[in-house]
């Protein structure tokens, strides 16, 4: 701020409060809806204050689910989402950090080719090559298991670039000193490079966890077995039923539960999250 302008300050606050209100409003209404009984919506409009059915709706959703929708209870679906999110995050980080290490600390034929092959994945989002990728996964027998949910998503150009950029800034002297002391490449990686990359790994983990949790199209294709549904794609099935019968209260409870874990992660680790986001994407 350069000079003090009370009117402009007031307007800025007003604008920000308005912005926050718009951002929060849909979730507030969803939360309110999730605390009411099934008949509170029949009057034609959603109430704006919390109702008494909070615990009842959430526990019903977590343990029994909406049976008529053919979707399982939320707890196993959230478990699947958790496995998928952690699997995607850990998988991407491990294979990316290894390939960045290879590209930066070794010189070998086809190094540039390998780099470009990794780079190309950036240009082929899963949405674009849905049918052939599905066929490959099907022919490998990876439908309806965690491997099929996770492995095809773990190639990552952005994570590889991030680690490559970071490794390039690590002083050469560290590696030279390690070699003088007789450390091999793997020891150097494990004892020096990995500890130095801790912050980057943590920041990346947050971004990738959210990305993995929020996958929608991929689990939709890979899982036909309800035991493997993830929560974000499972909710769609419930919402489709909710239009036919007035069960919006528990569908909104499900929506709240599905959105909560990733939101909690980025609110709790905001500083790391912002670092991860603004540094990985550039």
């Amino acid at each position: 701020m350069v000079e003090n302008r009370p009117l402009l300050n007031f307007l800025s606050h007003l604008l920000l409060i308005l912005g926050v209100a718009v951002v929060v409003f849909p979730v507030y209404v969803a939360f309110i809806a999730s605390t009411h009984g099934p008949n509170d919506f029949l009057s034609g409009v959603v109430p704006l204050w919390p109702g008494p059915h909070l615990l009842e709706n959430y526990s019903q959703m977590l343990t029994t689910g909406l049976s008529s929708s053919g979707a399982p209870p939320l707890l196993p679906m959230m478990w699947n989402s958790l496995i998928m999110a952690v699997g995607v995050a850990v998988g991407k980080i491990s294979i990316s950090i290894l390939s960045a290490f290879a590209i930066v600390y070794f010189r070998f034929p086809f190094r540039t080719l390998a780099f470009w092959m990794i780079f190309i994945t950036l240009m082929l989002p899963v949405e674009v090559r849905i049918v052939p990728t599905f066929q490959v996964v099907a022919s490998l027998g990876m439908l309806n298991n965690y491997g099929g949910l996770i492995v095809p998503l773990i190639a990552s150009a952005t994570a590889t670039f991030l680690f490559r950029q970071f490794f390039l800034t690590v002083p050469d002297e560290l590696m030279e000193a390690a070699r003088v002391d007789g450390a091999g490449p793997l020891k150097f990686f494990w004892d020096i490079l990995l500890p130095l990359s801790r912050t980057n790994i943590a920041a990346l983990f947050i971004i990738l966890f959210v990305l993995g949790w929020n996958q929608y199209l991929w689990p939709l294709l890979i899982t036909t077995d309800p035991h493997l549904y993830t929560v974000v794609m499972g909710i769609k099935r419930m919402a489709a039923v909710a239009d036919a019968e007035p069960r919006w209260n528990i569908v909104m409870a499900a929506v709240m539960l599905a959105a909560l874990p990733p939101v909690l992660v980025i609110v709790a680790m905001q500083r790391l999250f912002v670092k991860g986001l603004t540094e990985t994407e550039k």
Binding site: V23, A30, N214, Y216, V232, A239, D243, P262, V274
Partner: peptide, 25 residues
């Protein structure tokens, strides 16, 4: 307060607004 919707899945964002604009309720 402004940043957290980043973590909300697109599908869930869709359902939230679908509910707000639902013609009957």
């Amino acid at each position: 307060l402004i940043v957290w919707p980043y973590a909300v899945a697109p599908a869930i964002a869709g359902i939230l607004w679908w509910f707000l604009f639902n013609p009957s309720i």
